[in-house]
Design a protein around this nucleic acid. Sequence first.
DNA 1: GCGATCAGCT
DNA 2: CACAGCTGATCGC
Length: 711
Amino acid sequence: MEDAVSLAEEEGTMAGIIMHNHKQFELPGEEQGMEMFESNINPDSQFNALLKLISDNDKEDGPYIDMLGRNSVMEDSSVLVEELISSLMTQGKCRDSMVFCDASLQNVDSQPFSAGTENFNTHSASNFQKLHSGSERVSFEADNSSDHEQTISEGRLYINGALVHTETEVNQRLDCPVCGTCITGLSFQQREEHTNACLDSISRNEVHHCNAGISIIDMDESKVELGECVQEPSLVDLAPVVRWLEALNLSRYANIFIREEIDWDTLKCLSDDDLCTLGITALGPRKKILHAIQQLGKQTNENVSIINDEPNGKQHVEMDGGGRTLITDFYQIPPSLQGTGASVPQNEPSNRGKGERSRAMPQKRALRELGGIPEWMSIPGTQFRVDAFQHLKGDCSHWFLTHFHTDHYQGLTRAFRYGHIYCSPITAQLVNTRIGVPWERLKPIPLNDPVDIDGVKVTFIEANHCPGSVMILFEPKNGKAVLHTGDFRFCEEIAAIPVLQTCQIHTLMLDTTYCNPQYDFPKQEATIQFIIEAIQAEAFNPSTLFLIGTYTVGKERIFFEVAKALQQKIYCSATKLRLLQCMNFPNEDMKWLTTNDQEAAIHIVPLWSIASFKRMSYIARHNHGRYNSIVSFSPTGWNFGRGKKRAPGRRWRQGTIVRYEVPYSEHCSFKELKEFVSFINPVNIIPSVHNDSAEAADALIALLLNEEAEN
DNA sequence: GCGATCAGCT
DNA sequence: CACAGCTGATCGC
């Protein structure tokens, strides 16, 4: 444990800070550092471990911590820190807490990255600089030893320039987590006694059935004496729920459950959305509660008691296997979904998705190659080809292009002479300007406006992938409609498109890029918000260059939203500007762009140019003098699969270069894919990605149709 | 010399 | 893994 902090240092991450006796200590963050918390689930032992960590400086004052903070950017790894904070505050062992943003604590009289603060580059500790009443500089350690404390005097703590804490203002309001009464005026011991009295009072009225499901209690019996606080009479027995929360170390939410009269049965039905509505917005506690509810269901089925009465009268929730619980346990994938998916049972035919339609289960089919063309490139019932320019042949004269990405137009050159290319107006513009295909070969088709092509009704539909991307609905005369999604991301706007609600789709050619439960990334809005907040936090150094990675076509929404939110111009190259001008963005968006790099500290760059610290160091060298720090954002969905923790973003640092990997995807998450399949309810599904064999295709389809894959 | 194609890399 | 795309080598015209 003694090296927990320095281990976290190497990753440049941390989950929280402690202020104790006017000194600041860091709580280790992701990866190795988390072991400290994982191995000490009991808050008391965590507290003792923390005290041990700071024992060298714990000679005089009593056993309390001035302030605990957690890092808002490292949300996942801070789950346990947050619980610890709550627990310690309830016990009166910690006076205050805060949520802070890495690098948001400013030191006005310092010159970040200038000579003399070289240690800033090697210590994440140094990111937390303090203002104090005097103008004396904070001193930093220059080596990598485990001595990380930074002396502050007369501490005043500022976040983004605003005073949030002074050492003389530690006694802030504190409410009882059970009854909500203000207990600020009480001593720590009195607070504990009060809270325990509240809990005991509720427990006394709980009769014999803490595990027995619903517990309706008579009005008279439900009257609860809560010391000096008055509890509203309740028709339902809430004690088991309160105890359950307590055992999960989430007592701070007890008052919400009491207020909303969530009883034991209601609890078991709560969804993630319900928790949000209740006001439990933090991701960690929400996941923890959902996970525990899931465990509840399992154990109830097995007729095993969740809340066991122990000899000491305390109760607890059984964790998996009774052993240590890992943070990743909160993000479990059902065992039936792990592995290849080959063992997933097929569902019986049933009414799916749009209620009134009853369809057969998508048929198993072998992968066929039609004259050497993958089957998802050839539309059944027509002579049409989609994204098949690597298979150009004279036997076809109708070629469709879903969007302008190399892996879809590969093979297409200005020499194209096999008939016509049908695509969206934006894609047509790009094909003409970037590849040089003449306009007489291009047939731009507007969205949501059916056209007749060679006797087939064809409708182009927005695909929410990149500018100009479309899904294409083919309705041949044989009555078997085919929907080719191209690359797409399902969203409410797509679900609202009338033709998709009414047309019965026979064959769905589906973008299965992230067709695995491990791909569970957030909505684009959430990631963009994360990026905006990260930029605000990192901008404490005015000489920071921000780089946002984009594809040739794609990810535009990120920088337009950032520009609007921060009211800042964004630099892009003249080439990139010409590209963007092909994409019909509104003037309100385009006005934020500039090709003068002196005008903007946020630059749009190709993703590959920031793919490694080595490449970014070239950029750093190139900008030497103007900028002394670089913060980059690499948006992709791949970073967030395969055992990696689900997080709004991962922060890496090497010297003065910071790299954020953020889960911004322009493909469906697994959950969205399932929702889309359920919505379309096709007879037949043909995966267009990872479809190397009939077995692979069947495994993908099985995953998509498996009801248990919901979470 | 130019464009197309492919291997290799991230 | 492989998104989507870059770089560089090779080949044919």
